[in-house]
Design a protein around this nucleic acid. Structure first.
Ligand SMILES: [Zn+2]
Length: 504
DNA sequence: CGGCTTTGACCAGCGC
DNA sequence: GCGCTGGTCAAAGCCG
């Protein structure tokens, strides 16, 4: 509902903020106006970089794209100021009276402004270049990772687990899917639903849109043939990503649309657990559970599961990718493949620097689960950055996307058997490269805000996704669609009830 | 009227 | 085999 409305902005913004604003504006004493312009420009560039660039070669120094924009602005400004010089109508009338002194002053001003403009232009260009570079780097890394991943997979195939094999060779379907995911959840049904022998899946489950991927637990039912592929998928599906965030409001917008399909009292928790299903596309297998922490009811625990089988709005992408990545991570944890391990470590190391532990990976549970704990942020507001969490998100995401930046504040503890893996050099380098960008403060800020939590998760995902090109969307996002998971148990009976399919 | 929420019931997995 | 619990379904009700 509103989620869609709200989230978009976030995403939109993030790319923008990401590079442009913040740092690298040492000189601007020019303040707001200038900043605005720059930001705007950045946005434009972002959107139509290339076109913008090629804009008029115009005057001014070497600056291309930006310059053109700037020129435009400049002219406007000059026009006003310059009026005196040119003796153009309007001003002329009044100005005539004024003495030469004014003209001189005006010229001086103009000159000054021009100088400033030039400076700004150059700076702007510089920023632009940085942006481009970052983008290119990102893309390059992405490709690189993809390549690496593929290699790894093939390696695994050589002696690896059955699952891995299936994943790659089986039909390459998994791979393809992953790619698709990366891209963003592509055509509907491409994902889980369509993949491989799923027919069996569907048939077995018999039914409906929902049918396709539901029944995670019912894995056993499958026919032997599809067992392996499905096992992999099942694993993927099983993988869960839970986000713990402090939130009085039961609403966390993640860009997805959810429909509540059940609520139950969970065992050791006085608060009911709500079950949601993604409704952005028919048959989307993604589900999430929302529950308040028994210990601290201000903490909202959102658990995502599954892969979206449809395109996602940017806003949702973040979370989706996060969760998916996390899921993958888990997966890999359970499997010998380097993927997950890589991710795990990456995550851990990336996040560690920050503060308290925030991410926990648990593969032991019935379902491998990654928990992002965003509730432990110390004092989000103490830091220099005035930005609100919401504002930060964009940056975070952006950075994550572009640089695989690190998020402060997360700690990963692996309970998985194979705990010792080393980050591939690549990732390490990536890390280093990015390290400067985000600070603890950011993390902290994030942690406190529920939406932030979601965002953070997304960011993490991004990171992971980046490190592992294959990951992308899988589970969805946190969007607590208006359900009050509050203390009141709607269903509150100790006996969980359920309603059965057979009801007919 | 369509979509969403509520809520009791059913099913399957798991432990004893 | 039985009971517990998690998860899901779908009828009924609510809301915009
Ligand atoms: Zn979905």
């Amino acid at each position: 509902m509103d989620s869609s409305a709200r989230s978009p902005p976030t995403c939109i913004q993030f790319p923008v903020n990401l590079n442009c604003t913040t740092h690298d504006h040492p000189d601007d004493h020019h303040n707001l106006i200038d900043d605005r312009r720059k930001i705007i420009d950045e946005m434009d560039f972002f959107a139509d970089k290339k076109e913008a660039r090629r804009c008029e070669p115009t005057s001014d120094d070497g600056a291309d794209g930006p310059s053109s924009f700037m020129d435009f602005n400049v002219n406007t400004g000059l026009h006003l100021l310059t009026a005196a010089n040119t003796g153009s109508d309007q001003s002329v009338a009044d100005d005539r009276i004024s003495s030469n002194a004014n003209n001189k002053r005006g010229k001086t001003e103009v000159g000054f402004l021009k100088t400033e403009l030039q400076r700004m232009n150059s700076e702007n260009q510089r920023l632009k270049e940085m942006l481009n570079q970052a983008t290119n780097d990102y893309k390059g890394l992405q490709r690189h990772l993809m390549t690496l991943m593929q290699e790894q997979q093939s390696d695994n195939n050589g002696g690896g687990s059955a699952q891995e094999r299936r994943g790659c060779n089986g039909n390459g379907k998994v791979v393809s899917r992953q790619f698709m995911d990366l891209g963003l959840a592509v055509a509907p049904d491409t994902d889980d639903v369509s993949s491989e022998g799923p027919m069996a899946d569907k048939e077995i489950r018999g039914g409906e849109d929902l049918g396709p991927d539901n029944k995670i637990p019912k894995l056993n039912n499958r026919s032997p043939d599809t067992s392996v592929d499905q096992a992999t998928e099942a694993t993927i599906r099983k993988a869960r990503v839970s986000v713990r965030a402090r939130s009085e409001a039961p609403m966390m917008t993640d860009g997805c649309q959810w429909r509540k399909y059940g609520q139950k009292m969970a065992k050791g928790n006085p608060c009911p657990r709500a079950y949601y299903r993604c409704t952005m596309a028919a048959g989307c297998p993604v589900r999430k559970q929302v529950q308040r922490c028994a210990d601290d009811r201000s903490v909202l625990i959102t658990t995502y599961e599954g892969n979206h089988n449809h395109p996602l709005p940017p806003a949702a992408m973040a979370m989706a990718s996060t969760t998916s990545s996390a899921a993958r991570m888990l997966l890999s944890g359970s499997m010998p493949s380097a993927d997950g391990l890589m991710n795990s470590n990456f995550l851990a190391r990336t996040l560690l620097p920050c503060s308290s532990s925030m991410a926990t990976i648990s593969a032991s549970a019935p379902f491998p689960t990654v928990t992002l704990d965003l509730t432990q942020s110390p004092n989000p507001l103490q830091f220099p950055k005035p930005n609100s969490p919401a504002a930060l998100l964009p940056q975070i995401f952006g950075q994550a996307l572009y640089n695989h930046s690190k998020f402060s504040g997360l700690q990963v503890s692996q309970e998985i058997d194979q705990t010792t893996q080393q980050l591939p050099p690549l990732i390490s380098s990536m890390k280093q490269g990015v390290q400067n960008q985000l600070n603890v403060d950011t993390a902290n800020t994030l942690a406190t805000d529920p939406n932030f939590a979601a965002a953070l998760a997304a960011a993490i995902t991004s990171i992971m996704g980046s490190s592992c090109p294959n990951n992308s969307n899988n589970s969805s996002t946190n969007n607590i669609s208006g359900v009050n998971t509050s203390d009141n148990n709607s269903n509150g009976n100790n006996k969980l009830s359920s309603s059965g399919y057979p009801v007919n």
